[in-house]
């Protein structure tokens, strides 16, 4: 038997899909700003491993000489990013949805098992509710990162008026580094997130648009188990729902 199981609330879906293009614009315009003083890189013993960013990268994305444009976009879309994020956090706190999201005491141990399972090293996965342990950690972290981006962003934006924020972020320099590192974090998150969504399949993806998942439930009468299962499969013409 098929059954509709509610998964994601409307506000969660709304803020998720608003955030995606808004954050994209923030990263894009942020690159215009960063380009004007592209000081960061990763080097070991004086040998530069990565330079943020190589020339081909700037050329490919048409980044150079657009500082003013980047600031104009950045300081408009920061409002949408902030309001949308605030909406999500307020909803998650007041609805009690945070219980499904925030990592539990055993989440860090379990997340390791989830990782091993996803890498096909471990066969079983710990029992989970809406989110598994790894998701709890990842999705809570990404919210904290969003908060971090707003705080460090404000610290760089108004370092004199909001001097206490700047101080909290370890000063102007460090705030700028965190702000940049968080952005790199979003991109890495995005890559893994997309990969996981593809692997998780249609039912999971749909739930972030329509809010529900379709699950197969155990029929009431044991004897008819195979019969009902077959019947259900015929009905959907083999459309796979996991």
């Amino acid at each position: 038997m098929k059954e509709i199981k509610e998964k994601h609330a409307f506000l969660m879906r709304w803020t998720h899909w608003v955030n995606f293009p808004v954050l994209t614009v923030m990263i894009w315009s942020g690159l215009f700003i960063y380009w004007a003083n592209d000081a960061y890189g990763i080097s070991i013993f004086g040998f530069t491993l990565i330079k943020f960013f190589p020339e081909w990268f700037y050329t490919y994305f048409h980044i150079p000489q657009r500082l003013a444009e980047g600031m104009a976009f950045h300081f408009l879309f920061m409002w949408f990013f902030f309001i949308n994020g605030l909406l999500y956090i307020a909803y998650t706190i007041f609805s009690g949805a945070w219980r499904e999201l925030v990592p539990k005491r055993n989440s860090f141990k379990e997340a390791w098992q989830v990782l091993l399972h996803d890498l096909h090293i471990r066969k079983t996965i710990p029992p989970q509710k809406k989110y598994n342990a790894a998701q709890r950690i990842a999705y809570s972290a990404i919210i904290l990162m969003g908060v971090g981006s707003v705080i460090t962003g404000l610290a760089i934006y108004k370092p004199v008026q909001l001097y206490w924020l700047c101080w909290l972020c370890g000063g102007y320099h460090f705030a700028r580094i965190i702000h940049f590192a968080l952005t790199i974090g979003y991109v890495l998150f995005f890559v893994i997130h997309i990969l996981q969504v593809v692997l998780a399949g249609w039912n999971n993806f749909r739930s972030v648009v329509s809010g529900f998942e379709v699950i197969e439930t155990e029929p009431q009468i044991r004897d008819e188990k195979t019969l009902t299962a077959n019947h259900a499969e015929n009905e959907t013409n083999g459309a796979k729902e996991n």
């Binding site: 038997m1 098929k2 509709i4 899909w17 648009v209 329509s210 809010g211 529900f212 009905e235 959907t236």
Partner: peptide
């Protein structure tokens, strides 16, 4: 039916999306 419900909700949500 369940199937109709699924179809209807998919239609509305993806339409809006």
């Amino acid at each position: 039916t369940i199937e109709q419900k699924i179809k209807r909700r998919n239609f509305i949500s993806f339409g809006a999306f």
